[in-house]
Structure formats: C-alpha cells, structure tokens
Amino acid sequence: MNCAEFHQLVEALARQEPMDASLRGSALAHSQSCTACRCALSQAQELTAVLRRAAHQNRQVRAPVRIEENLLRAFDERKSSRRVGKGALLARHRWFAAVTASVAAIGIALLSWGPQLDLPPVEQAATIGNDSEGVIASEFFPLQGEMEVPPSESSGVVRVAVPRVTLLAFGLPMNPELAMEPIEAEILVGEDGAAQAIRFLHGRQ
C-alpha cells in the first residue's frame, strides 16, 4: 500500500469502520513504516475521540417540553376544526337536500296541476329522442300514479327547465353539487291539458 491509498482509508480506519481484514492489515502495516501516514492516522483517531465525546454530550440535548404542548394543542385544534368542518358540511347538505326536495315537490305538483296552467303550444316529442346534436333523452316517467305513459300521438310535449334535483324523484342519479342547476325536460301533456309524463334531456342546459 502506498501513501495515496492509505490516505483514502485513514478516516475509515480512525472511525473503526468495518473493512476487509487484509486491507486493514496492509493499511496498518503501511502506517507503521511511514511516519507521515502514522501521524495522519493518529490525528484522525484523535478527531474521532473528540467527536465521540461531542456525540455523548449531544445525546443529552433534549427538545423543550413546550414544543409538545404546542403541537398537541395544534393537533386538537386541527381535529376539532375538521369535525366542525364536516358537521357544517353535513348540515349544509341536509339543508340543501331539504330545500331541493321541496323545490322538486313543488315542481312536480305544478306539473300535476297542469290543467290550471296556461301551457304554451306543444312540440312533437318525436323530434327529440337521441338526436343528432348529442342530446340523449331518458325514457318517459309517468307523473300520475300508476298511469301508463300515453301514446305520443294523443299528447303534446312541452319543453321546460327543471332543477336537476328533480332527477332524484324518478330514481335517476344526480351530482349533488349541481342540484339547483337546470336540466331540460319534456312534459307530455294530455288532450285534457294535464301533465302526464316527463323525460329528461341530457346534454342540454
């Protein structure tokens, strides 16, 4: 082993790092025969001893207790603010659901009371269906109890906009965040002027 090779190993030797036994042996043998390298090893070992004493003192350093107190307080506050946040959100959802359900009920009631309404001229339902504008129509849902959906020849169609929450009343899925957004619907109006069925047009606002 020469001095340059020894120099690469001197810190590892001084720190007593695990190393190949033959490598260690030849490094130590070199240090015995080279005064400069022996001195370098001695200085490195001295530094190791100094640093170990410093490490021993270092282990006695403790974080102040108040940090834990502050953090646990922050943890509790965070937890309670999340709970309050969730509760408020839930309350808002409940309130919102109640309002939208009322709106839907009123809408449906108004539709059911069709004869009293002065409905505009009707369009033909046949023109909608799955049309070329990418509008997809749902099936017609009867509006009056068990009544069958009347044949379209005997009915007129009125296109209206209803809140999306109305979808729920017919068991259709709805994004709660868009509950009050309008969705276009078509109402089948019988010869007597009464609203008989409704379908929803997806792809129209």
């Binding site: 270092n58 350093v61 974080a63 940090i67 953090l71 943890f75 937890k79 999340r82």
Partner: peptide
C-alpha cells in the same frame, strides 16, 4: 385523528429532530 399515535410518533423523534 389519533392523538396518542401522533404524540407517540413525536416523542419517538422529537429529540433527534431538535438536535
């Protein structure tokens, strides 16, 4: 939201992080 778990984790590492 387990406070004890947070406290245990903190106590395990606080001194090392502080040092």
């Amino acid at each position: 939201g387990d406070r004890e778990a947070f406290a245990a984790l903190f106590r395990r590492h606080r001194h090392a992080v502080y040092r």
